[in-house]
Write a protein that binds this DNA or RNA. Structure first.
Lengths: 154, 154
DNA sequence: TTGCATTTAATGTAATTACATTTAATTTTG
DNA sequence: CAAAATTAAATGTAATTACATTAAATGCAA
């Protein structure tokens, strides 16, 4: 019996306690799925996340701090993640003209191409979830948001 | 603008894609909350999780493999987590009589006492969520389960 | 019963993360 | 303006994780 069966059982004192564990467990599970999906492309989920943030900027440079603010996992070190992406020649790094402390990072065409490749696989994988109807999907998103918004600024 | 604002915006191609990111993000966020909560007690979330699994066994010993199966994060090394708990004298480790390959782990009274201390703080912290009504809590749990069950055995 | 495959836990190691510190640039303040 | 405080990024390091391998015990099949 694994955690999922544990989750089903009423060994939780409160529904909240169960939800807390369920959110962590499902988050880890999802991360693992993403990890497996990215493995053939030589990217970790954190590196992938940074690449997507850069793409989201639509050619506007973003600083390392900007990346940190948008990362799913604040604890990863954006500076070193960018190093890894540089090694792979997926991004460009240059001094920010407005503020010489800051460093602008821009995604390179090679990075965009790689993301497009991954998009294909990602969309294919997402089909696994198509039997969950859109209304439920929406509800889930709202509930997760509500959970975080219990504390300010999340 | 952080990820939460990003999540609110419609920069996602699909609701599913948004939900995937939301689940990972909220899972990380929740893990961070737990991390902060446990810090004063000198436990990592993974160590805490193992302790709770041991308590859940109600004095029946459980093997390292049994712990692994129940862990929220499969990637952590149960063997080394148990080492850490041993160092802190919160658990006992002994050869399993039925199978000499296996190692039984049992929580010590000191471990139970520590968990009880943490329970107090945990319950206090969970009050933050009390304004989310129980029905929503239930729905969230069901939706997360449904998400995972799209793949078998999760 | 011997040999082979499997299971269980531990361990070696490279990479990553957590956390503190450093360096350099900018902003604020007296 | 000069000094102090703050900010941005990089770096050092200890701990942890990821992944492969090892060692020992068990089960199974010939």
């Amino acid at each position: 019996m694994g955690i999922s069966e544990d989750l089903k059982q009423s060994k939780f004192n409160t529904l909240t306690g169960k939800a807390v564990v369920n959110i962590i467990y499902t988050g880890n599970w999802m991360m693992q799925q993403t990890h497996d999906l990215l493995k053939p492309f030589g990217l970790t989920p954190q590196q992938y996340n940074v690449l997507r943030i850069l793409r989201g900027q639509q050619n506007n440079p973003i600083t390392v701090l900007g990346i940190t603010e948008r990362m799913l996992d604040k604890m990863s070190n954006a500076s070193r993640l960018v190093d890894k992406l540089l090694e792979k020649k997926l991004v460009l790094r240059r001094e920010c003209p407005q503020d010489r402390r800051a460093v602008d990072v821009i995604i390179l065409p090679a990075g965009l191409t790689l993301l497009e490749e991954i998009d294909q696989i990602q969309l294919e994988w997402e089909k696994n979830f198509q039997r969950i109807d859109q209304e439920k999907m929406d509800t889930l998103n709202e509930l997760l948001d509500e959970f975080r918004h219990v504390f300010t600024n999340n």
